[in-house]
Design a protein around this nucleic acid. Structure first.
Length: 275
DNA sequence: ATACCGACCTGTCAGC
DNA sequence: TGCTGACAGGTCGGTA
């Protein structure tokens, strides 16, 4: 389940491998779900583009594209192709001889002879064409100042957990890192976001940045493995302290970790350490 | 405007 | 063994 650290790791890996490569032709599956832009329009815009940069914005992977010298002069100079992996989306760099996995929904044929494949069994992923200034829906959690972070939650009645998941506030935080950062900050997920003290918001911002950075470091150690081949190895190196730990003793106080449903999501916390 | 909830999807796994 | 149902969750659209 790709959240900010996973998307960052994938974007970095794809950037390293594909920067400077060109898109010659594109194939899309028949499923319409992955396309926020009509497939024909997207295919026409992607062909004869050079990959200038691949990076992460929120949970989106953004391909900055520029025309190849051969492209017609009517091409817009710069466009962006964005990939959202949803729950189960993957990007694979393959050769034409690599067997095609089930649920492959897009294949970009590249000038180097390689292929970039988008595989997404559950089809929650989305592909989109952007005019060239894609910003994402919310604020970047790794760059937000304390003042801006505090302002995001002011006056809000929804739970802090739901607020962290709201991509139009902060983008990039998903269920795992919401739970993990709330645990590290000692804040119960059910607390109304607007009722948190300045001190608590400060702890939460610090915890969120720390856990995201640690996860990026962990994922970063196996970037090429992920992009090349099967695994999502790197992402399991992260030590979860509450997520998926229902009933296990809290690492700090020993109380059993509780699981409730909040904002429609499984939510994990320590009933003693988080108040 | 804000908040909440079901729908969308398929693979996995517990339980029978 | 093979089946059934619950569960996983990012995002969107409908509703209060």
């Amino acid at each position: 389940m790709p959240e900010l650290p996973e998307v960052e790791t994938i974007a970095t890996g794809v950037h390293r491998q594909l920067r400077g490569d060109t898109i010659l032709s594109v194939w899309f599956s028949r499923y319409r779900e992955p396309f926020k832009t009509p497939p024909d329009e997207m295919a026409a815009a992607l062909c004869n583009r050079r990959i200038r940069q691949v990076r992460r914005v929120g949970k989106h992977i953004v391909f900055d594209l520029e025309p190849t010298p051969q492209a017609s002069a009517s091409f817009r100079p710069r466009i962006q192709w964005t990939v959202h992996l949803g729950m189960s989306g993957r990007l694979l760099i393959a050769t034409p001889r690599s067997p095609e996995m089930r649920h492959t929904h897009a294949v970009l044929h590249l000038g180097s002879g390689r292929e970039l494949r988008f595989v997404d069994p559950r089809r929650f992923g989305r592909l989109s064409l952007e005019p060239g200034d894609f910003q994402g829906p919310g604020t970047e959690p790794l760059a937000v100042s304390l003042a801006d972070f505090t302002a995001l939650f002011r006056g809000r009645k929804l739970s802090i957990k739901a607020a962290l998941l709201n991509q139009s506030l902060l983008h990039g935080v998903g269920n795992i890192y919401a739970d993990e950062s709330l645990f590290r900050a000692g804040i119960r997920p059910t607390r109304p976001a607007g009722r948190l003290t300045r001190a608590e918001l400060g702890r939460l911002r610090t915890a969120l940045r720390a856990v995201l950075r640690a996860a990026i470091r962990a994922g970063g150690s196996s970037v090429s493995d992920y992009v090349d081949a099967e695994g999502s190895k790197g992402f399991f190196q992260v030590q979860h302290r509450v997520y998926g730990c229902k009933g296990k003793p809290c690492r700090v106080c020993g109380m059993p970790i509780r699981r409730i449903v909040l904002a429609g999501r499984g939510t994990h916390f320590c009933p003693r350490c988080q108040e």
